[in-house]
Amino acid sequence: MTDAIAASTRTIALLHLAPRPGEIAANRHSIEQGARQAAARDARLVVTPELAVSGYGFRDLIGTGWIAEGQADLFAWAGALARDIGATLVLGTPEATSDALFNSMIVFAPDGRLTGRHRKINALRVGSESWSTPGDRPTVIAVDGIGRVGFFVCADMYSPRLVDETAAQGIDLLLSSAAWAPGLHGPSGEWERASSTTGRPVLVCNRTGCDALDFDAACSVAAVSGAIAFSHAFPQPGLALVDWAPDARRLANWRVETVPRA
């Protein structure tokens, strides 16, 4: 990386956490720990995994009534956290409207405002995700200091059409939160393909730990030009940091730190 590019880089933090199903307070504590650790490394964008607030298999343990009941408090907490760390926070959480529940990424700006959301489109209608309603549109959000970001949740990357429709809105970077374990239905080239067809880097914030599945070998990755450029998988929760040069649309200098378990 040249000196000019290095001077204009922004650090992006992927919180490779181990959310516990149904343990909302513990998961919030883990997110806050990771976000503050990321801020100490000058991260400008902090991303959490899919359903980081609730864990993946929460429904059978605590139901879904808490989602709407606690949403105002949750969003107030997340906004305050984003403001405290001075960074954009992408929160993976169940989301409630007056008539539906969604598997969402909620975006909070550095001043604490809720500035956008992406609702998982390729949501499973059986098993651990059967509580959620599929989203109905691609999402691109302008993120302070980062650029125009296309948002995906996990299996949304299965769909070349969704990738194309997102890219058509004009993007600098593709970003996915995930709870995507390797195995029979695990990732199989979707991230690499998206980086190749769009000509833009793909960052994936995956998770670890045991939930409805064993996620210990699940990878958080950066895909560039059709190949995996960086990857991290480890049973211990971690903080993956990567430098992003917005003007050059280039990722570099991947490094990982451990994060204490909640």
Rank of each mutant, 00 (worst) to 15 (best):
M1T: 12
I5T: 11
I5H: 12
I5S: 11
A7W: 14
T9G: 11
R10C: 13
A13D: 14
P19C: 07
P19H: 02
P21L: 06
P21S: 15
A26T: 05
R28D: 06
I31H: 01
R36T: 12
R41S: 11
R41E: 13
D42Y: 10
A43K: 12
L45W: 07
V47R: 09
P49R: 08
P49K: 02
A52G: 04
V53Q: 03
Y56A: 02
Y56F: 08
Y56E: 02
L61E: 08
A68S: 14
A68K: 12
E69M: 11
E69D: 15
D73L: 09
L74H: 10
L74M: 13
W77E: 09
A78C: 06
A80H: 15
A80K: 14
L81T: 09
A82I: 04
I85C: 12
V90M: 10
G92A: 06
T97K: 12
A100I: 11
L101F: 13
L101M: 12
L101C: 08
M105F: 07
M105C: 09
I106V: 15
F108A: 03
P110F: 14
D111T: 11
L114I: 05
T115I: 15
R117D: 10
R117Q: 12
H118F: 07
R119L: 06
R119T: 04
K120I: 07
N122P: 00
V126N: 01
S128A: 07
S130R: 04
T139D: 05
T139H: 10
T139E: 09
A142S: 15
I146Y: 06
R148W: 12
G150Q: 09
C154F: 00
A155K: 01
A155C: 04
D156E: 07
M157E: 02
L162K: 02
V163W: 01
D164F: 05
T166F: 13
A167G: 13
A168Y: 08
G170T: 15
L173V: 14
S177Q: 15
L184E: 03
W191K: 01
R193E: 08
R193S: 10
R193Y: 05
A194D: 00
S195K: 11
S195G: 06
S195L: 07
S196W: 07
T197Y: 01
T198E: 03
L203K: 04
A212V: 09
L213H: 13
F215I: 00
A217L: 04
C219G: 00
V224C: 12
A229W: 04
F230M: 06
S231P: 11
H232D: 05
Q236L: 03
G238C: 00
A240S: 14
A240C: 15
V242L: 05
D243H: 13
W244P: 05
A245H: 03
D247S: 14
A248R: 07
L251Y: 11
L251R: 13
N253V: 02
W254A: 04
E257R: 08
E257T: 10
T258V: 07
T258C: 01
V259W: 01
P260L: 10
R261S: 14
